[in-house]
């Protein structure tokens, strides 16, 4: 794939946090790409580095974070890591926008929805009436009835599902090249979740924007994404095209994650599968593969040195010696 087809190209990104106990190596050598008009899903459990990754892309990291030398976050040809503060302001909310997890807290409770939406357009030198019209149009696009009138309303006057629709509308106001959605449906009921996912599919056709969709729900990733990235303890352990990944998962962690999902278990049963052990301490990393201590298929090379990403097929790779050795 040529460079021009990529919206986001993250190369060898490593991020650490300085803490009292030592350096927490939260992300290590992460490579991900988001092609134009594609939805890329990031899946992984708590503490796997999903949030650190998206915060790095937006440069919203905490002050004690260190982006290690050699890291590169290329967004449409510009390296986000080298950007000045004014360039970053230009980037955030305009060229990359974000939908957060909890729509109840993402909106300002004391400012009307219309004002919050037109505020996003502060860069545009157009009359207020025009801005409000755009905001109303956008609300209508995300399925909010009677949009013009509801601009006057405050967030508490909307239900949870409607609030998330508003957040999505706000994220799309500036027609961004990349939309990052961080667990956008976790706070919602399953019926509303299905509605939001449906909406995101529709909007993707309409707005032609690329999307980075972060979730721990495998069902949603399968439903929505074109490509999938599986993260574990700060590393990308497997990535590939969505069908490849779900049907021919190569990394033991991905396989176990899929097996654990109660929605995937066809027969009702009393004892559910789990992944034994816990995530390793990210200050004192094991010398070999990061998943080795919990891996049921661990063998000699796993403890010696960390695995590289090995190709499973054209668009599918996994950091696992089993793939290298064809076992």
């Amino acid at each position: 794939m040529s460079q021009n087809d990529l919206v986001l190209d993250v190369r060898d990104l490593s991020v650490s946090f300085r803490t009292g106990r030592g350096k927490v190596r939260a992300l290590r050598h992460v490579d991900i790409t988001v092609p134009k008009n594609k939805i890329v899903g990031i899946v992984g459990e708590s503490g796997c580095g999903k949030s650190t990754l998206i915060n790095s892309v937006l440069r919203l990291l905490a002050p004690n974070a260190i982006i290690e030398p050699g890291s590169q976050v290329d967004f449409l040809g510009d390296d986000v890591i080298k950007m000045s503060n004014s360039q970053l302001t230009d980037l955030r909310g305009q060229r990359i926008s974000m939908v957060f997890q909890d729509p109840m807290t993402a909106l300002n409770p004391v400012i009307s929805v219309g004002t919050q939406m037109t505020d996003i357009l502060y860069r545009l030198k157009i009359p207020m009436a025009e801005k409000r019209k755009r905001a109303a149009d956008m609300l209508a696009q995300v399925g909010i009835p009677d949009a013009q009138r509801r601009l006057e309303d405050f967030p508490h006057q909307f239900s949870g599902g409607m609030r998330q629709r508003i957040c999505i509308a706000m994220a799309l106001m500036m027609n961004p090249a990349l939309l990052i959605a961080d667990e956008p449906t976790t706070a919602l009921d399953v019926t509303l979740e299905a509605q939001i996912i449906h909406l995101m599919k529709e909007l993707r056709e309409k707005f032609e924007c690329s999307m980075l969709f972060v979730s721990h729900n495998l069902g949603l990733i399968a439903e929505l994404c074109d490509e999938v990235i599986v993260m574990y303890a700060g590393e990308v352990v497997e990535q590939g095209e969505v069908h490849d990944l779900f049907h021919r998962a190569a990394h033991p962690y991905t396989r176990m994650l899929l097996e654990c999902d109660p929605a995937r278990i066809a027969e009702a049963r009393q004892e559910l599968p789990t992944i034994t052990g816990s995530v390793p301490d990210m200050i004192d990393l094991p010398p070999g593969c990061i998943f080795a201590p919990r891996c049921p298929r661990r063998y000699e090379p796993c403890d010696a040195s960390p695995p590289e990403p090995y190709a499973v097929s054209d668009q599918h790779s996994a950091r696992c010696f089993l793939v290298r050795d064809g076992r």
Partner: peptide, 17 residues
């Protein structure tokens, strides 16, 4: 029907509720 299945071959085009 609203519970998504972790299988990309079983995507739903329609909304049930």
């Amino acid at each position: 029907a609203a519970v998504p299945e972790p299988d990309p071959d079983k995507r739903r085009d329609k909304l049930e509720l």
